[in-house]
Amino acid sequence: MDMIQDWIIINKIKMGDLDAWEALVHKYYDEIYFYCVRRCYGDCDLASDLTQDIFLKLVENISRYRFTGKFYNYLYTIAVNTCNNFFKKKHITQIELTDSLVSDSENSLLNEVLHDEEKMLVKKALDSLPDVQREAVILKYYHNLKVKDIAIITGVGVSTAQSRIYQGLKKLEKVLEREDFL
């Protein structure tokens, strides 16, 4: 049903329907924003900037989009590449997620979405993973994507995506078991 709905919206966009753009952004903005928040170690301002960049890239490239798979795979591929390119160009310091980073309006929504992951130990453990494993774990467990979709989004084979998730989980387990981590 979602694929059909996306197909209809994207066809309207390709025909110049501005309301369809609004519908598409409304449908996917929060998902992409919170993916960026997690990739940016909780920096909401940076996540907002990256989310805007992602949707601008979508605007620039929507005319070339072909319905060869799920649209959200295409959108997440743009998101993953945009975040990866940003972090390759600029090394950022990992920061802790605190309420002071979040405006009041974002705070309630962020608390709702990040409810379980705000436990500092889990967040620090996740942030300690290598980027490719962290990315795979975030896509799998925070965005409920299938391994096949993660493989498509990240441009690797299914076995590599599975391996990244498995290795990431093993490392998370080890980090969380270490007493010196506390």
Rank of each mutant, 00 (worst) to 15 (best):
H91E: 09
L58I: 10
L75R: 00
K148F: 02
F71S: 10
F55C: 07
D180K: 06
D17E: 09
G16S: 08
K88I: 07
R66T: 07
E117H: 05
G157P: 05
D19G: 09
K12V: 01
R64Q: 12
S105H: 06
I62F: 09
C36Y: 04
Y142S: 05
R64H: 13
C44Y: 15
V102Y: 12
E60T: 10
L75P: 01
M1K: 11
S105T: 10
L139V: 01
N73D: 03
M120Q: 07
D53T: 04
I8F: 14
I9C: 04
W21V: 09
D127H: 12
S159L: 08
D6C: 14
G157A: 13
S100M: 05
T160V: 15
P130V: 00
L110D: 08
Y76F: 14
P130I: 01
K170P: 03
A151K: 00
D127V: 02
Y166Q: 14
F34D: 03
M1R: 10
E179A: 07
E96K: 12
K123F: 09
D127E: 10
L18C: 03
K123W: 09
D131Y: 14
R38A: 05
S48M: 13
V25K: 08
Q133H: 05
A136P: 06
S163Y: 05
D104S: 10
T82G: 03
S100K: 14
V158R: 13
D116P: 00
F86N: 10
C40D: 05
F55I: 07
E118W: 04
K90G: 01
K89T: 02
Y72D: 06
V122S: 06
Y141M: 07
K124A: 09
N85S: 11
E177W: 03
V102S: 09
D49S: 15
V122N: 07
T160I: 11
I150S: 07
V80G: 00
V25M: 13
A125V: 09
G157M: 06
Y166H: 15
L129H: 02
Y35H: 11
Y166K: 14
E112H: 10
V158G: 01
T154G: 04
V80L: 00
L182N: 13
E96Q: 12
E112I: 02
Q94F: 03
K170S: 13
C40P: 08
I10Y: 07
T77I: 00
W21I: 12
E31C: 03
S159F: 10
S128C: 04
E173V: 12
